[in-house]
Design a protein around this nucleic acid. Structure first.
Length: 282
DNA sequence: ATCCAGGGACATC
DNA sequence: GATGTCCATGGA
């Protein structure tokens, strides 16, 4: 057990905002599985110090929680209007997380048209049935080979619905190295997105989530149902915005409007909408 | 009962 | 390019 003292960091917002699905809070402590590690974290009320119950070194958490991102300059660059300004101030310290590409890919393929508790349940079942038990009740995420070779009757136990065959196909592509994660890292956002969207079950939204959360593409602007509702609800005085009705246009709008770090803007708007609905700006 | 949830594929126009 | 329907599942 040791401590870190990062600035601009709120553990609750970061783990609760809906970007990761394998953390749960009991009392003051969060428990989660990252790779083959069961990790427990807490944050002190007043000092804001991060308490870490894990054998992993500080460098691991600096990387995982993106302490290398300069949040104050990111806030400055994305703060374009009252709505995002409110979200930034209310949820200050929410950081994007550097996720594992494979787990992130499958997780967001399983997330389509589902509530967050349902997604969490699917991922838990998938890990319980196909992963390794690390501690009582905590399982590693299954590796690509296991899912590629999984038989459908076992996969159906995870309640994936129509998503089951999609993730099996994705697992096969990863195993055969037809889908190369290293290559995706090197590709520009636009081309990495096109590559991911060639997979069955990956459209613009899932591709953007995976690129934002696992491939360092901060210019991703995932348009899910909440973001769509936000854009439709707040008729911001912007001619480009006014004509923006379909989803892919909303993504382009977000990129242009918020700039290089629009992925951060997206996450703040998303979380604010989930927690508070359509907030008043007066 | 009906609608919605971190959507996407496919047909149709 | 824009629109409608279907796809499982679970909770409100």
């Amino acid at each position: 057990m040791y401590r870190l003292d990062p600035d601009f960091f709120n553990l609750d917002y970061t783990l609760d905002c809906g970007q990761v699905f394998r953390w749960e809070k009991n009392g003051d402590w969060w428990t989660g599985v990252v790779g083959n590690n069961v990790i427990r974290l807490s944050q002190e009320e007043d000092s804001r110090e991060l308490l870490i119950d894990s054998k992993l070194p500080p460098e691991f958490f600096s990387r995982y929680f993106r302490f290398d991102d300069d949040l104050s300059s990111i806030y400055e660059s994305i703060n374009r209007d009252l709505l995002i300004d409110r979200a930034i101030n209310r949820y200050k310290g929410l950081r994007l997380i550097r996720q594992d590409p494979w787990e992130c890919l499958i997780s967001y393929m399983l997330a389509t048209a589902s509530s967050i508790p349902t997604i969490q349940k699917r991922i838990y079942l998938l890990s319980q049935i196909f992963g390794q038990e690390l501690e009582d009740g905590y399982f590693s995420f299954p590796d690509p080979e296991t899912l590629a070779n999984a038989d459908m009757s076992m996969l159906d136990l995870c309640k994936l619905g129509f998503r089951a065959d999609r993730i099996k196909m994705a697992a096969e592509e990863v195993c055969s190295e037809e889908l190369d994660f290293d290559a995706l890292f090197r590709l520009e956002y636009k081309y990495a997105r096109e590559r991911l969207m060639r997979l069955r079950g990956i459209g613009e939204k899932v591709a953007d989530c995976v690129l934002l959360f696992a491939f360092e593409k901060m210019e991703s602007f995932p348009v899910d149902t909440h973001i769509r509702q936000i854009i439709q609800h707040y008729h911001i005085d912007d001619s480009y915005f006014e004509t923006c009705t379909n989803l892919s246009c909303m993504g382009d709008w977000g990129r242009e409007y918020f700039g290089r770090y629009c992925g951060y803007a997206q996450e703040y708007l998303y979380y604010q909408k989930r927690v508070e609905g359509f907030v008043s700006l007066y």
